[in-house]
Design a binder for these strands. Structure first.
Lengths: 164, 164
DNA sequence: TATTGTTATACTCTATAACTATA
DNA sequence: TATAGTTATAGAGTATAACAATA
């Protein structure tokens, strides 16, 4: 918003400011980019993550941390490799994510009964409390998305993007 | 979808592998993540970018480089700050992107006639050739997406995600 | 031999801050 | 004073490789 005056300031009046859809985009042609879904998916992802991060800023939970906490909370003693596979992240990266969550006392790594190579992951009581709050804030974020897109479009996006 | 097996899982060998849509996702409950668009947009973005990168691997053009080349090619002597604003990237990051493209002789930074602080950006003849090939390969990538989603869903996604 | 968790490395991306040369 | 391009830094994310303990 309020970025619509950029062009006028420049050399001479010859730079026509086309009134773009939301007054956000400058008068620069995107050419073939307009037909490429990847470009718009990327921009949408950035927008959504920024809103998510802002909404959960006071409990300092990132989208990645949120997804890990949700999956640990919704399952029973998962191993790290199972979580990594479910969320499509590298197991090496998950190690660092879990270190942080463990150092904040949100999760615990218990020895797995069956296989001593594995850890069985759990939320701590404090982790459950924080996750509950995170869910409330995340729902607020999602409501903002629903308002922006309309409930049907939101649901359609959810259904369609699940295929990836 | 496919999150209904949580209870059964906890007991013994009954770890039923629910036949998920594409046989990709393991039998781990995603819980609330299922209602969050950001999660699926992120996964879709990663999938799409990986396919794009693979498809353009032989000319070594990344999604970011492609978007920069497209915008330079579709406009007339843009400044760096205009490109950065159009694509929603930091001007500091654009500097490094352009260094690479310039060192590969795909673009040129010409002095701007009106404002000596600015560069006027152009494709080189070689840049035009590479961009033409990049467009062909990118179209092949996009066709794959259209086949995956169906033409109507693809168009709908394009229209809906443009709002961000 | 293979797998799980771990450490380490490298490269990209994002977010800033600060510098210079121009305006 | 402000802006355009640049440099530098720090943190996240991604992609690998390799190692120890265990299977």
């Amino acid at each position: 918003m309020a970025t619509t005056t950029r062009a006028q300031k420049e050399a001479l009046p010859f730079r026509r400011v086309t009134p773009t859809r939301r007054g956000q985009r400058p008068a620069v042609a995107l050419g073939r980019l307009n037909g490429h879904l990847g470009y718009f998916v990327r921009r949408a992802q950035i927008w959504i993550f920024q809103d998510f991060i802002r909404t959960l800023a006071r409990i300092d939970i990132s989208p990645a941390q949120f997804s890990v906490l949700i999956v640990i909370g919704a399952n029973h003693g998962l191993s790290q490799i199972e979580i990594a596979a479910a969320l499509g992240i590298e197991r090496a990266r998950l190690v660092r994510l879990l270190h942080r969550l463990e150092s904040r006392a949100l999760i615990r790594r218990l020895p797995s009964s069956a296989d001593r190579r594995r850890h069985a992951l759990q939320l701590t009581p404090h982790g459950r409390t924080v996750l509950a709050l995170a869910k409330t804030l995340a729902a607020r974020h999602e409501k903002r998305l629903i308002n922006k897109l309309g409930a049907e479009h939101h649901q359609f996006l959810l259904d369609t993007l699940r295929d990836f």
